[in-house]
Amino acid sequence: MNAAYEFVTGPLAWAAWGIFLLGSGWRLYSMRQLAMKKDASSWAFMDLGFSLRSIVNWLIPFNALGWRKNPVMTVTTFAFHICLIAVPVFLVAHVVLWTEFFGVSYATLPDNVADIMTLVVLAACLVFAGRRLGQKEVAYITTGKDWLALVIVTLPFLTGFLAYHQVFDYQVMIIAHIVAGEIMLAAIPFTRLSHMVFAAFTRAYMGSEFGGVRHARDW
């Protein structure tokens, strides 16, 4: 088991982070090149001020029309994304690992808060899955790629929760958790999760068009 743990926290972790960071960087760079080459008439209108105006207005819950018209989704998706980012970044156990490996240390969330936030992520995943199964307009457009993204995101939190509470075989669970987390990281640049990389830019583009050309709100 030690060898397996060493492997997933060593070479595999480096690989996952490498794929995530280099992959995201490469995807952003190549998309930028493609945009400049093939979307010049859109690229020309990109504007930092209007981009930020649009992004900020969409970051406020119930501000944009889209949020107001979809309250359940708004609550779910905001709670989901906040917890999804905050828990892994500020979890005590993860910060301890940063300290162990690199000597860096920073603020952490109390474990019981992180525990609840993990449950929020899992509950949100259930809501998303429920919408994909039960809500007609979502079910109609759901593809394998969407389920894949949902599963990839659910697993690290599910296994993390079980490992934390030491339910089932801890050693197996902790390795499963680490692998699941690494799969998620590595999948970000190459699956639907790439919206983490691109969403700010698609939003920024719409903000730029609506702000600079169409002089109307896009939220």
Partner: peptide, 27 residues
């Protein structure tokens, strides 16, 4: 950090003994 370093570094060097959180911090 002293505890973590003391225990884990040795376990890692020897290839024996617990490494992951829950192996020592058993519930």
């Amino acid at each position: 950090r002293a505890y973590h370093k003391q225990c884990i570094a040795c376990h890692r060097a020897k290839g024996k003994g617990p490494l992951a959180c829950g192996q020592c911090h058993v519930r």
